[in-house]
Each structure stands twice: as structure tokens, then as C-alpha cells.
């Protein structure tokens, strides 16, 4: 399973999302590969991803994708991240 965390610059916020998504997945007992990337490279990086994690502001930039786009409001809220990942991963 592949999950991609997206931010504008590919630095900083996507890395926080990656780190906390990994922590949330560990809580859920789900194995997945989480990658951090910038919005410009989303089409290449997310081509084979099941889930894209991002901010409400970046949804439009990501555009059409086969992946589930999961919008995270508070990047430090592990419960929000875990709950939304669980919903997306079914």
C-alpha cells in the first residue's frame, strides 16, 4: 500500500504529514509506505498511490487522480489522521 503526503514545496508540512501518518498507521496496525512530495510532482509520485494526504488548500492543485484524496485539517492530531485513514482504507 502506498500513501503520498503532498505539500506546496515538498518540505516541512508534507514531512510532518508523513511522520504523523506513519504514527497513525502504526496505531491502526496497518502497513503502508508513506512518501512526502510536492504538489508539482503529484502526478508522477501518486500514480500508483492508494491515498493522497493533503491540506484543504491543495485539493484543487492535485486535480484528477485515482487515489483517495484525504484532507487533513490539523496535522498534529493523530486521532483525526487515524480516523480519516481508516475510512479511506476501508
Amino acid at each position: 500500500m502506498k500513501i503520498v503526503a503532498i505539500c506546496g514545496a515538498g518540505i516541512g508540512t508534507s514531512a510532518i504529514l508523513k511522520v504523523n501518518a506513519e504514527r497513525a498507521l502504526k496505531r491502526l496496525g496497518i502497513e503502508a509506505d508513506v512518501t512526502a512530495a510536492d504538489a508539482a510532482s503529484v502526478r508522477d509520485v501518486a500514480e500508483d498511490a492508494q491515498v493522497i494526504l493533503t491540506s484543504p488548500e491543495l485539493v484543487d492543485i492535485i486535480g484528477k487522480t485515482y487515489a483517495d484524496v484525504v484532507v487533513i485539517q490539523n496535522y498534529f492530531d493523530l486521532e483525526e489522521i487515524a480516523a480519516k485513514l481508516l475510512t479511506a482504507l476501508g
Binding site: 505539500c7 506546496g8 514545496a9 518540505i11 516541512g12 508540512t13 510532518i16 504538489a39 493533503t54 491540506s55 484543504p56 488548500e57 491543495l58 492543485i61 490539523n74 496535522y75 498534529f76 492530531d77
Partner: peptide, 16 residues
């Protein structure tokens, strides 16, 4: 890219 750097209530992580 917009104000996505506001990653939690009350907190902005400015970066480049």
C-alpha cells in the same frame, strides 16, 4: 499554493 502552511489551529509553518 495558498495558506496550507497553517497546519494546525493557530499555527503556521512558513517554509520554502
Amino acid at each position: 499554493f495558498g495558506p496550507y502552511v497553517v497546519i494546525a489551529p493557530g499555527l503556521a509553518l512558513a517554509h520554502a
